[in-house]
């Protein structure tokens, strides 16, 4: 079947997205095949390191329980910088607005952006606004880019996982994806699940006090924890074993997942970080997380078991064992 056109699955964050990046986008734009891919690029100039990243936000619905597209756009870029260990400094904002969009809602979105920036300690330093005719965009799209600096020399990236590393997460999984999905047109489930959308830079800065012990930081957004850990396993060429029973998961999230036939391991998060760290530091990191407001439900969910393989497997809640692969195509509600 021809794939001469772009499909929605190419933007899902799963395997199709990777293929498009590897085969077309990165080779064309950079002229070199894709090497390591991290949340932000780490660049050097005149002997000092800085981090640079960009991300576009097209969430539907624009307002969802626990937040809106504005806060999401600021927090997402702040988090991408934090995931390479950088301290976020400034961000830019590009707004693409559909003709007819409510001014009141725009004000609300901008206020959320401002509040999120204040909380994260970044300034919004540049911006651009475009309005397109009705029907040429879906309400509002936002792009944010960000620059961060380093006040340490640690190398934190997805190729840095080592055998023996413990894997931690700072709280419950799947909250954002389910909060958004439950409000989609036609579904309108009555739940009290809120998005976990939050800036993680402050929490990360505290964790970085453990220094060299921290090997990988990554936020499991699109594609969820499963896709993110599989990426890390491949990038670092290690094998990972997870313990499903250790995963923090809200009962309501599990309920909606069961109803829609979704696996919470593949559902998006917006205020979560996966930390791969040396085993001797794991308990201390867990304590640090639990002391932080964004880490109260933190847990150790698995470990890097071996060098090589690029595999992820999970011991299931009932004691069985299965493999974990990347999200394929769109994760859609099942048929019955």
């Amino acid at each position: 079947m021809d794939t001469d056109i772009i499909l929605l699955g190419h933007g899902s964050g799963g395997k199709l997205s990777h293929q498009l990046l590897e085969e077309l986008i990165i080779p064309t734009l950079s002229g070199v095949p894709m090497a390591g891919r991290n949340d932000a690029a780490v660049l050097e100039h005149n002997g000092s390191r800085f981090a640079f990243t960009t991300d576009s936000y097209v969430v539907d619905p624009v307002f969802f329980p626990g937040g809106n597209i504005g806060g999401l756009a600021v927090n997402g870029t702040v988090n991408d910088l934090a995931m390479v260990g950088a301290t976020p400094l400034v961000i830019s904002v590009g707004l693409i607005i559909e003709e007819g969009f409510s001014r009141r809602e725009l004000a609300e979105i901008l206020t959320s952006m401002r509040e999120a920036a204040d909380r994260a300690g970044v300034s919004i330093a540049a911006g651009d606004t475009k309005v397109v005719p009705r029907g040429k965009a879906d309400r509002i799209f936002i792009n944010t880019s960000g620059i961060g600096f380093f006040n340490h020399t640690l190398e934190i990236n997805g190729s840095n996982a080592r055998a023996g590393d413990k894997i931690l997460i700072n709280g419950t999984i799947g909250d954002h994806g389910i909060a958004v999905m439950a409000k989609r047109e036609g579904l309108e489930l009555d739940t009290d699940i809120l998005s976990d959308c939050a800036a993680l830079n402050n929490l990360i800065e505290e964790l970085l006090e453990e220094g060299e012990a921290i090997h990988v930081l990554r936020d499991p957004t699109r594609g969820g924890v499963a896709t993110t850990l599989k990426e890390i396993a491949l990038q670092s060429d290690v094998s990972i074993t997870l313990d499903e029973a250790a995963f923090p998961l809200k009962g309501a999230v599990r309920g909606v997942c069961a109803l829609l036939g979704l696996d919470p391991l593949y559902v998006a998060n917006e205020g979560k970080v996966l930390v791969l760290a040396a085993p001797e530091a794991a308990e201390r990191l867990l304590e640090r997380m639990k002391q932080h407001p964004l880490g109260r439900d933190a847990a150790i969910i698995g470990e890097v078991t071996a060098v090589g393989g690029g595999r992820v497997q999970i011991e299931t809640v009932v004691g069985g064992m299965r493999g974990v692969e990347m999200l394929s195509g769109e994760q859609l509600p099942r048929i019955c």
Partner: peptide, 27 residues
Amino acid sequence: TPEEPVGACMVSSEGSCAAAHRYGQVE
């Protein structure tokens, strides 16, 4: 594969091939 399925069993989340592909790989 689930990205480029040949048959329906690789597409549906309930299909045996899709389930085996997503969950099958265990050491």
